[in-house]
Design a protein around this nucleic acid. Sequence first.
DNA 1: GGCCTTCACTCAACCGGTTCAGTACCACGG
DNA 2: CCGTGGTACTGAACCGGTTGAGTGAAGGCC
Lengths: 343, 343
Amino acid sequence: MSADGPPAKVTIKDVAARAGVSKGAVSLAFNNRPGLADATRDRIFAAARELGWAPNLAARSLSSSRVDAVGLAICRPARLLGLEPFYMEFVSGIESVLAEQSCSLLLRLVRDLDEEVAQQERWWKSKQVAGSILVDFLTDDPRLPALGALGMPVIAVGHPSLTGGFPSLWTDDGTAVAEAVRYLAALGHRRVAHVGGAAELGHSAIRNAAFAATVRELGLDAGRQTPTGFSGEDGARATRTLLSSAERPTAILYDNDIMAVAGLSVASEMGLSVPADLSLLAWDDSQLCRLTHPTLSAMSHDVHGFGAEVARTLFALMTTGEAESRQVPTPALTPRGSTGPPR
Amino acid sequence: MSADGPPAKVTIKDVAARAGVSKGAVSLAFNNRPGLADATRDRIFAAARELGWAPNLAARSLSSSRVDAVGLAICRPARLLGLEPFYMEFVSGIESVLAEQSCSLLLRLVRDLDEEVAQQERWWKSKQVAGSILVDFLTDDPRLPALGALGMPVIAVGHPSLTGGFPSLWTDDGTAVAEAVRYLAALGHRRVAHVGGAAELGHSAIRNAAFAATVRELGLDAGRQTPTGFSGEDGARATRTLLSSAERPTAILYDNDIMAVAGLSVASEMGLSVPADLSLLAWDDSQLCRLTHPTLSAMSHDVHGFGAEVARTLFALMTTGEAESRQVPTPALTPRGSTGPPR
DNA sequence: GGCCTTCACTCAACCGGTTCAGTACCACGG
DNA sequence: CCGTGGTACTGAACCGGTTGAGTGAAGGCC
């Protein structure tokens, strides 16, 4: 707190001098390693505090070849990302774990997977990150061959059938979709539709398949499935199409909450009452689902916790070289006001 | 692409050897500095490509004492952040500029301002960032004294009256609020309410003051203002309170779009028709405003562009040591379906 | 032909930490 | 009294780049 004129940069040497020890001792103290008397340790910390010194991480990382950051690249247009509560929650879960280890997250929004591959390679080769998190797998994802060869520690978010050998964490979307459809069927619905994502997206493919299978298994009328880009506008358009068709569904399952909100608004615009004329079921429950009228029933899961678990697993991989692929808790049905028996 | 067994780490020396030059030459090439024949340059790049080499950024940053990252700490609970499209758009705007300069963004979600100050100090002292972006200023923000003394390049997002001498970028919220109120008054509303933020938040204070002043100036009935925490639930609660009061407002201005969505839902829950019985006007226009029924009128602005401008200004500050404080375009009224003359 | 530039490049020091072999000192057992 | 082991600490090499002074050759000018 003293006015020391030009804040001349202070290095480990200055701290060492002030504490009357060698650089090595300061290093030991700041990495709390054994081999120092408590009194010395205290003197070193005191000196560092007085000088306002913190170790230069570039130097540390250079000499110890340990890195204090992990990477996450997300590939969706920003407009959309901003809207999907999922990612911010996910990121925040990741960070809650990284912060404990004083590790930083390098976040990058990319336009396409080529850009992501380029970014990940750069991160890894230039030693900016100690590992990375991969999300949004396509079936036959082009990142797999490119990044697999790199030898970079990677945790994949997605079903093992998509993530090509990378240690993976995933939610059991198939089971959750089945639960959703069964629930709607139990309410008495026979014409159920699904507003999902493009089939190239791995988790969309899984959900689509599960939807079709469950509809068949329960002997419901052939359930229509509409692929979308997950935006609210996509959801609205899909809903309009479905509700204008001859065989109008009495229940719709959406692959995120934004589209469900849009669907609710379309229903109201078309004069349908929810849930009497139409039941709506969202995915990725967020606060948004409690803000509508009626409130939206949803398949909800702990996204923050998911992110935290991903970060923990990545740490395990980076430190021990091993990581278990694991399924995290399955999204659970949270019934609210938008689902009910058909009229 | 050759199978080179264990991916032995390759350094600048290997590249130099392969290209038949010295380390210095490789360094010149990769920082595209003059002093190399084109042929040599090409040979160096070819060698680097063949070996899959990229410069170790820690080493570069250590020796050149140049840093390739900037920091942004956001202090709001994650649940809320996820919902506010604002931040993701803002971040994406920042990134669009940083990426051009191959600079990374260190993003941290913190719980309170003390934690933010600690983080910023650590970032700066440990040379992890070359500068930082500060958002969400309180009146008398505790970060100002703490970070001002650091000498770190900082761009503040907020009105200069709040940002204590840091170069700042801001939107003219006062004018925008006035425009909003004038518009509602022109539609014939005389009882207008405002669902805003806590008065400690600097921009809330500005908006609140502008609201009160405009109401007075236009001779409207005393406009009620309710401070909230910006969450949807807060918006719903505030709306219920307003609509249950004796002197029920005929129009409500919200300080973000989430609260406006919640307000719309409360209106419908209470059997009021929008906009006949009640007009609603949102702030921070996002896709969400087009997903409701009726669609939400909003004060909209280019958040992505705002973020980009902030990043550009930070770069100017970091490279030239100077940066101009500047007002960015004022949010503009975008009328949609939720505003109209009172019944 | 001699002198001065300019260009292309090399060499070694240096950035600020970490690491590890080595040293000094003390305590303890025999 | 010596050896042995352990603890506390030092010193120098090293991490992988950048930087700037220095070198040698080519070219221009009188």
